[in-house]
């Protein structure tokens, strides 16, 4: 049977250990929250199909999310997954300033390994703690993102779910815009974009039947 998506895009979650990368992935893919910190060993991955606009016939992008380990000791391993990433969530923890100051290192490492056209979103996680534990003002983060050529910034809470969908949807939409404006050479595998050739040739009504799902 045909796959229920039009494109697959590879997205990596990066950032310091404990800032909530795995939590964001689990929130998006499984809709739950785990209060304990199960340190990621190497890399995990999940996926989620996201329609790129609100029309019922919207094209769908399957985000293949590679949730990398933040701990220093896995740096060598995680780096090999940056190659070919189409999108990236650069995550920090708004309640720990150090995770934000390290973002520049993550960004440099990502840019040195990934494609130049990669869509990066800066994500300030744990915004449920904003009232009494905030250490990074949203405005400062937004300004930093702009200064470093990152187009989008969003604050999220994997705990409450706030902003999580938006973060990934933003990412998917930007990738879709890039696809449509021909930024990627779809024949070149190194972009981490794959087209569903079987699906593209389908009739419209077949397409509308297709539903989202989550692995």
């Amino acid at each position: 049977m045909p796959q229920p998506w039009d494109y697959i895009a590879k997205v990596v979650n990066i950032g310091d250990s404990g800032c909530g990368k795995s939590s964001l992935t689990i929130r998006l893919c499984e809709g739950r929250f785990n209060p304990t910190h199960d340190v990621t060993i190497g890399v995990e991955f999940g996926s989620r199909i996201i329609p790129v606009d609100t029309t019922p016939t919207a094209q769908k992008i399957k985000l293949q999310i590679w949730d990398t380990a933040g701990q220093e000791s896995f740096r060598a391993i995680t780096k090999s997954y940056f190659r070919g990433a189409t999108g990236a969530l650069l995550v920090y923890d708004i309640s720990r300033r150090a995770t934000f100051t390290h973002a520049i290192e993550w960004l440099e490492e990502l840019r040195s390994a990934a494609d130049a056209n990669i869509s990066i979103i800066l994500v300030g996680n744990k915004c449920d703690l904003a009232d009494d534990k905030r250490e990074v003002p949203a405005e400062e983060a937004r300004a930093w993102a702009e200064a470093n050529g990152i187009k989008a910034f969003v604050e999220t809470s994997a705990k409450t779910g706030e902003g999580v969908e938006e973060a990934f949807v933003d990412c998917a939409r930007e990738i879709y815009r890039n696809i449509k404006s021909g930024v990627y050479d779809l024949n070149d595998k190194s972009h981490g974009i794959k087209t569903n050739t079987a699906k593209v040739s389908l009739s419209m009504d077949e397409q509308t039947k297709v539903t989202g799902g989550c692995c």
């Binding site: 609100t54 969908e165 539903t211």
Partner: peptide, 17 residues
Amino acid sequence: SLLGILQAQAPPKQDAT
């Protein structure tokens, strides 16, 4: 909203996945 659409998606039917 886009979120609404996401939430309103029909449950996945019995496919390979």
